[in-house]
Amino acid sequence: MAYFIAKRLMQSVVVIFIVSLFTFLLAYLMPGDPVYAMLGGDITQEQYDMAYKEMNLDKPIYLRYVNWCADLIKGDFGKSYKYRMPVIDLIKTRLPVTMYLGGLSIIISTAVGILFGILAATKRGKILDTVITFLANLGAVMPLFWLAVLGMSLFAMHLKWLPSYGFTFPTEDFVKSVRQTILPVIALSVGAIASTTRQMRSSMLEVIQQDYIRTARAKGLKESRVISKHALKNALIPIVTLTGMSFRNVVSGSASIEIIFSIAGTGQLLVTSVLSKDVATTQACILIVAIVVSIANLIVDISYGYLDPRIRIQ
């Protein structure tokens, strides 16, 4: 197990290194002058010369990368020319918002998806199964930005049941926080609920056909006990891997959801910085999000290896 974890950890380090290379190169691969890319167009010649030196543009590129990484480790992600403040301060306030919404969505979608999947599998062929499968197929093809604007127009603009914008942490004002997060979290969760339901249904159906389930039934156990005690454990294993993937998709969806509901999170920050060609902020957002996703995947893979011994032997 220790070897498996060490190997997997090493892979994550390499992956983060490659992502850092990619984000570093963003500033140089984009068309135009990297100094303008970093500081925006409206700077004087003196500022330009200073930045040119400061960004080490007179040094070879590998040295620049090493310096950039050294700065990152010190927590210096450069300065956002759009927001006129250090990027790290922006990230510090915005990352927790995206992580809170994403975490909440993952918890809800995993729980709901597992429940729906079990219901559909145990009632296979019945009306309930048809309805759930239909809804899961619909959820998988529904553009989440569309669902979000529909929900917002109906429940916030028209019926005025819920606020249409903003974000508050539950620690500040619980009721306000719940009211503000209902719509965004539902919109973020639908896709993940759909995929979890489908995966849960098919893995449950597969497990139910196994010999040991027949044995459990044959020895006279109640069906509810067979499902909850014997089948569930094995059927849940594929869900663990799916959670890692769902997390990535939920974070991906946060870009449009945060824009629609005016939530000051990383997704919104990334979109606005791409639109205003604020490279330092773009780099930081992508790198930070990729690191968080890699860590989440690392945790998922390790727990997968823990749950399923066949994985760690490979």
């Binding site: 992956v15 490659i18 992502v19 990619f22 963003l26 870009a255 979109v271 791409v274 773009t282 996703v293």
Partner: peptide, 24 residues
């Protein structure tokens, strides 16, 4: 494989946005 893992670790829309800065 590691380069692909790296690409996969960046959420799809975020990766597209990043590439969008390069390709316009």
């Amino acid at each position: 494989s590691r380069v692909m893992d790296a690409l996969m670790s960046i959420p799809a829309i975020m990766l597209s946005l990043g590439l969008g800065i390069i390709f316009g």
